[in-house]
Nucleic acid binder design. Sequence first.
DNA 1: TCTGGGGTCCTAGGACCC
DNA 2: TCTGGGGTCCTAGGACCC
Length: 419
Amino acid sequence: MVSSNRIIFHIDVNSAYLSWTSVYNLQHGDTLDLRMVPSVVGGDPRSRHGIVLAKSIPAKKYGIQTGEPLFSARQKCRDLIIVPPMYDLYIRSSNAMVEILREYTPYIQRFSIDECFLDFAGTENIYKDYIELAYKIKDRIREDLGFTVNVGISTNKLLAKVASDLEKPDKVHTLFPHEIREKMWPLPVENLFMVGRATLPKLNKMNIYTIGDLANHDVEILKASLKSHGVLIWNYANGIEDSEVRSCNLPEVKGVGNSTTTSFDVADRKTAHMVLLSLVETASMRLRNLGNCCRLVSVSLKTSSFVNYSHQRKLLTPTNSTRKIAETAYNLFDEIWRGEPIRHLGVYLSELCSSEFYQISFLDDEDTEKSSRLDKAIDAIRLKYGPKAVMRSVFLHSGLKPMMGGVTEDDYPVMTSML
DNA sequence: TCTGGGGTCCTAGGACCC
DNA sequence: TCTGGGGTCCTAGGACCC
């Protein structure tokens, strides 16, 4: 049951990756504050990872956007400073922030590495003024940790999130239901959560340009053309949203996947299999760490001309065996590959179930049991000595990493399109 | 030196069953 | 005896988020 007058905060780290790198640099003797100059965090173009992951506010003024190629970002600003990502630092910075937030309420949902929802249910007698509280939290994070956040305040998560996005950086905004018309409706419709680059042109075609235009459009017409998504964004435009701040009972993981853009085009089956094996090593280890088996294995690929396709297969019995999953992935790949040069390969394991059930049946199949014990032993060594401690001999001198894809120990909160 | 990687959810079409 | 129709499962593709 959701109370109608909840108080929800949305905390959003300003230019998260960039701020965190900047603070780290300043703390280590650097004198330049990257946040004050046109700068971005970006991948390495030599390995074909050259996109903007985060931008400073001055970089934004040049029209630089997250996700855009560094090549094009540099054309917009010749003096652009580009720094590499530091993922370990980002996880530590995120955790440090959450530790502070926990002092104010136990009801915290980590929505992504740099965003949290806070629910202040049952605190009416503790906090007299929530706006004052928001300033206190914001300033506390800045003083203790050195980076700034925006705080959005409202009665549901959607409105709080829109509020925190209003004006940056280092700001507190409210967006209560009575303020929707004045503060939210004039905004461009693409600012609304869940209106992405495919939906925007469809809305524009219907003469919808602002969130207010969407809110006041006939919902039946939206439903006819955009199906359930049309109803969802119409509700959002009207501030209607009632999901819980999920601080516990987190939804179970639906699947684990790893994918990679290779530093060169893969042109032969054998190399493709090696990349797939490397991805399966990472994904299946994550699966085992979760205590799960999967029943569905999917392989996806992107060609050098950016065409995507995928293929999947349901297994007769669930598994978490590296060998079994890799063999399935090889077969799937061989069945779909049309022979073009490959830029990107991915493996996704889903339809998960607990691995405990299958412990017993391992005894039936000597081969499966052996393979499971081997996986376990290798996982333990990698946990203790690092992922490079054990590698399959095929990777020796291959120039390929034996375990591709990220998210291992510190499985940080997943980012999703669900509130 | 041009375009990432981790997710969740939805839809459409075809197979298959009764 | 000139072609229904509902339900479910499977698969591929694409939407969205950060």
